[in-house]
Nucleic acid binder design. Sequence first.
DNA 1: AGCAACTCCGACCGCATTGGTCTTGCTTAC
DNA 2: GTAAGCAAGACCAATGCGGTCGGAGTTGCT
Lengths: 152, 152
Amino acid sequence: MLRLTKKADYGLIALKYLAEQSTNGAQSAKDIAEAYHIPPQLLAKILQTLAKSGLLVSHAGTNGGYALARSAHDISAFEVIRAIDGPLFITSCITIHGTCDLHGTCTIKEPLRKVNDSIKELLSGIRVSDLIEPIEDSPAAALAGGLVSIAL
Amino acid sequence: MLRLTKKADYGLIALKYLAEQSTNGAQSAKDIAEAYHIPPQLLAKILQTLAKSGLLVSHAGTNGGYALARSAHDISAFEVIRAIDGPLFITSCITIHGTCDLHGTCTIKEPLRKVNDSIKELLSGIRVSDLIEPIEDSPAAALAGGLVSIAL
DNA sequence: AGCAACTCCGACCGCATTGGTCTTGCTTAC
DNA sequence: GTAAGCAAGACCAATGCGGTCGGAGTTGCT
């Protein structure tokens, strides 16, 4: 259920790495890939996508590479996932056009949309900076954006 | 992002229908399929899966069909989705064996697992019975299981 | 300025999964 | 016995994910 793609995984890992190494200037796709044993060319493509989305800035040439466009604290996991996987939704009922392909007889669309929004808020509350420090369960809870309510 | 399969959609729709028609005895797969313009044979396969998972009871023969095994109030959306789509997880890092394929260097596994659990709780709080009545935003909020907290 | 190394960038491809169909066999009610 | 309905399996097409390849542009060094 609810699988997000490997690309999104890689993207998050890369962003975390870039956040950690932000003082060392730009990091090349190859370096990041080697650090985590990720297929280099695949990661390169992911980073390109993120750069096109404005989350990263790219710098070509020798000693070039990628760097965060914003502070790690201002980039949410939701933005990253949406940039990579596209604006997909929890259910096929909810398309980009908002229309349901079930001839208007789909009756579970609205409840699922609420779930969709809740998940969206959930992910929006998670920042790249939150991924860095080792997890401290209790105190980080407040930091993470706290509570997400679901109203059916 | 976070798409759940069309099969799960169909399954939820069918369960909602069965909950509504629970007083009329068993409903055949064909009837449900026609009511919502769903491919009959596909829905049949989905209902078989749900029956095998113990969420539905099947009754063969004339006037046979499917009925809810439990009260609509006791079946959560999470159970339905898991029964149909299997025990998949939000990220490829979290496999059934709990091992990460990134050679132990995956550093975002733990945060994402928390997200995974939160979504699981979110869906567990939604019952089939909640899908039936038209959405009343405010009062239903409390009914739906209330608040899901995420601790990073 | 010219060269060479480095890095980004876009197009391309195989394969797994999903959505959907067909066929056959078994069970039950009338 | 027959018709209605479930059960179960193989089978097929398409979408999209994961991964690869070659090219174009930029930078630093001499």
